[in-house]
């Protein structure tokens, strides 16, 4: 464990807590893409299957349990509890356009052709594009609530910090995993447009609006 990965995990945790707080406090999931949350639940479910087979540390186990539980809790809030506030008309990104190519890629490009490894690879690839429905929804509505932009910023920073962690581990531990690194770079690049808007607008107290 290093400070970059720890701060990445903290940023990830913060993003999830911000999202849950936003939905719970405002009793509304307006502006939140349920499809991205479904993809995240799929990402954690397929990645953390080793929860039962390999124990790394109490921290590792606790975080995996939390990520899985919170992703399903978010789906429950969006599609059941506050479904009246779910903006179905703007959450129209076709998930199958993401899941299917990622599934094929996981079978073609992986480190080991075993079920657990293919599921892990699928999860890594899927996570890199899972935010697209959410970013698409923000661009479609042309704006996002400030709290939602904080959620997106924390979520985007998590994987950006992981990239620094991978550089660190490459030089100090001789560790690298090209699949995770390339997917992580793609994932972070997808946020760049949003990062720019967040820094130039939200941090100056303005509303996050996109040129629709």
């Amino acid at each position: 464990m290093n400070v970059f990965r720890l701060s990445g995990d903290v940023s990830h945790l913060l993003a999830i807590l911000i999202l849950l707080m936003k939905i719970w406090k405002t009793r509304s999931c307006a502006g939140i893409s349920g499809k991205s949350q479904i993809l995240f639940a799929l990402v954690y479910t397929t990645r953390y299957l080793d929860l039962f087979t390999s124990f790394i540390s109490p921290y590792n186990t606790a975080m995996k349990v939390f990520f899985i539980a919170s992703s399903y809790a978010t789906i429950y809030l969006i599609y059941l509890k506050f479904k009246a506030t779910y903006d179905r008309n703007h959450d129209t990104f076709r998930m199958e356009f993401l899941v299917l190519p990622v599934l094929v890629l996981a079978f073609v490009v992986n480190h080991d052709f075993t079920p657990l490894e293919i599921l892990w690879t699928f999860s890594i690839y899927l996570e890199s594009v899972a935010i697209l429905p959410q970013l698409f929804m923000v661009s479609k509505t042309g704006q996002a609530e400030t709290i939602t932009s904080h959620y997106l910023f924390a979520l985007g920073m998590y994987r950006a910090l992981y990239i620094v962690n991978w550089v660190y581990r490459y030089y100090f531990e001789g560790f690298y995993d090209l699949i995770a690194i390339i997917a992580g770079v793609v994932q972070t690049v997808l946020y760049c447009d949003f990062f720019y808007l967040y820094v130039t607008k939200v941090l100056k107290g303005k509303q996050l609006t996109l040129p629709a």
């Binding site: 990965r5 390999s54 790394i56 990520f67 480190h111 962690n165 560790f175």
Partner: peptide, 10 residues
Amino acid sequence: LRRSAVKDEL
């Protein structure tokens, strides 16, 4: 350089 088989990252 080795690639860690155990996924110790989240």
